[in-house]
Design a protein around this nucleic acid. Structure first.
Lengths: 216, 216
DNA sequence: CCATGCAGTTAACAACTGTTCTCCCACATT
DNA sequence: AATGTGGGAGAACAGTTGTTAACTGCATGG
């Protein structure tokens, strides 16, 4: 069943995407739990009943949005943590990447930040699940780093969590910074850089007080 | 005008509080932007129109909730950062305090976490403002600490921000942890403690690479 | 003790919501 | 060329929403 291609299927995907886009735009001024089905279809220009051909409910659409939003976030996180260059340079590059991503997909970032603790259970859980996946990936990336020698897996994961949360906080701050003022954005960058630096310093001296030091 | 006391004023405050309480409870399953005026009055048991005697709109009620919620959070933050005892002990105590607070006021914590990035502008701004105040306070408290000698005010504030954010993240994690399983709560505590410890280590070595070191 | 103020009520409104059922017709299948 | 599948439209439904207006009764201040 279903030639995966064809004019028919293509059109369907197109309106489906239109629904997602319209919803994302409408969500800039409200939360998912107050987004109405009719509101979305009206924005797209189709009948309310057509909505059901694509999603069972608005919650359902929300979960789909999580996939889309964190799908676009996925490659960024990978690139951000990828080891290359010296510490200070890596920090600057990571923050630059975050800033660029927020510029490119502001609605996606806003959606994730808003619905991460939002009022719709299934969406919250979908986000948590994806973020846990990210944390695990960052943990693995960290494990391959020379500075992580001697670290327990538990500690690597807690550091990864720290990085992921910090990344989201920074992204959210960029989002709130008025698009017009580069000075505000610069201020956010500076603070975020210092915080990452402090975490980095903590990382370097994490094992200082351990027996491992005199073990030889 | 207005004897601040009297049967009249007392009753008014009472129903006002009832509205706030009812709203807070209703908000456990949705976001503020989808909370209806009628929904709240229905829960309290008064006519919809009576709502206007206390708040101009649901947004307005939301802002009032921010005051209430962060008012209750305020003393906790103070106590948490107050210097007393050795580092490791302070960390344990801080986390214990957070856990207790989440147990005591789960709805408040949920509300703040949810609406911090929520869909209602005035509420978001009220929360941001209060959090900025907290950050400043924590910054001052940090300044009075022996370990902060030689720190610039800028750095103190970025550290304070790190602590405040970390505190909210931890509170939110406690909230998500099923009330029934103490093992999950213990896991959250452990990770949070390690993260605070790492930040603390970073703090201790923050000035290591500075000229100040060879100044003697 | 009486007149005023004001928390709360009742009734009504136009607008909006999610969901159902029935229909249509362009496309895909044979 | 005939058949049928499925995206979308249309109308109608029972509820719900915020807000208005005019009201009632009681604590209050003179």
């Amino acid at each position: 069943m279903s030639h995966t291609s064809g004019i028919r299927q293509a059109q369907k995907q197109k309106t489906r995407q239109a629904l997602l886009d319209a919803a994302l735009e409408l969500l800039e001024g409200q939360s998912l739990s107050s987004l109405g089905l009719r509101e979305v279809t009206r924005a797209v220009g189709i009948a309310p009943t057509a909505f059901y051909r694509h999603f069972r409910s608005v919650e359902d659409l929300g979960v789909a949005l999580v996939e889309e939003a964190l799908g676009s976030l996925h490659p960024m996180i990978r690139t951000t943590v990828t080891p290359a260059g010296e510490g200070e340079e890596r920090i600057a590059r990571a923050i630059e990447l975050i800033a660029r991503h927020v510029d490119a997909y502001p609605a996606h970032v806003r959606f994730i930040a808003r619905e991460r603790h939002g009022g719709v259970r299934p969406v919250r859980e979908a986000i948590q699940e994806q973020l846990a996946r990210f944390t695990a990936e960052v943990g693995e990336a960290l494990a391959g780093d020379a500075e992580s020698a001697g670290w327990s897996e538990e500690d690597l994961l807690m550091l990864a969590q720290l990085y992921v949360d910090q990344m989201l906080i920074t992204a959210s701050l960029f989002l709130e910074a008025p698009a017009s003022s580069p000075e505000e954005r610069e201020r956010v960058s500076k603070v975020a850089a210092r915080q990452l630096r402090l975490i980095h310093v903590g990382r370097q001296h994490w094992l200082d007080g351990t027996d491992t030091a005199g073990g030889r």
